[in-house]
């Protein structure tokens, strides 16, 4: 697991704070709009929007909110939409366990993180207990 750092060649499209549930809805529709701008089809749009929805809910439910950074940049020779969710919550003790299907530390179904990973092209996670969690998802057309 490596710390997640932005590439300076990436183009920053926006930073949004997540404070309450309404922010989840707001950022979700912003992400959908960006996906449309990337000329992604309806299925791809739904996938990235759902993936970001999972991450934002985790952030809101477990870490008391955080920040979302939306960027675009070249990933493995693809023009990708890059979304990074940064929180200063309790962190994840065992990332491997959290990434496995059906495991939940709270009230959820346990498919949020692994499900989000399956919905995107590239997924990175970095977490330090007591310090916070950073999750980055990347999707290209």
């Amino acid at each position: 697991m490596q710390e997640i750092i932005s590439d300076k060649n990436w183009n920053k499209l926006g930073i949004y704070p997540i404070v309450d549930e309404h922010d989840i809805v707001k950022v979700r529709s912003i992400v959908r709009q960006h996906a449309k701008d990337f000329r992604m089809g309806i299925v791809e749009q739904t996938r990235i929007t759902t993936a970001i929805s999972e991450l934002l809910r985790n952030m809101y439910n477990y870490a008391n909110g955080g920040d979302v950074v939306i960027e675009s940049g070249d990933i493995e020779e693809h023009n990708a939409l890059i979304i990074t969710c940064i929180d200063k919550g309790p962190g994840i003790e065992n990332v491997e366990l959290a990434m496995s299907d059906g495991y939940t530390s709270g009230m959820g179904m346990g498919y949020g993180l692994p499900g989000a990973k399956r919905l995107v092209d590239k997924f990175e996670i970095y977490s330090e207990p007591q310090k916070g969690t950073t999750v980055r998802i990347m999707k290209w057309k």
Partner: peptide
């Protein structure tokens, strides 16, 4: 349930 949502649900693993 739209086709896009159906695919998404399957990928999520629900």
């Amino acid at each position: 349930i739209s086709p896009a949502i159906a695919q998404t649900i399957v990928h999520l693993g629900i």
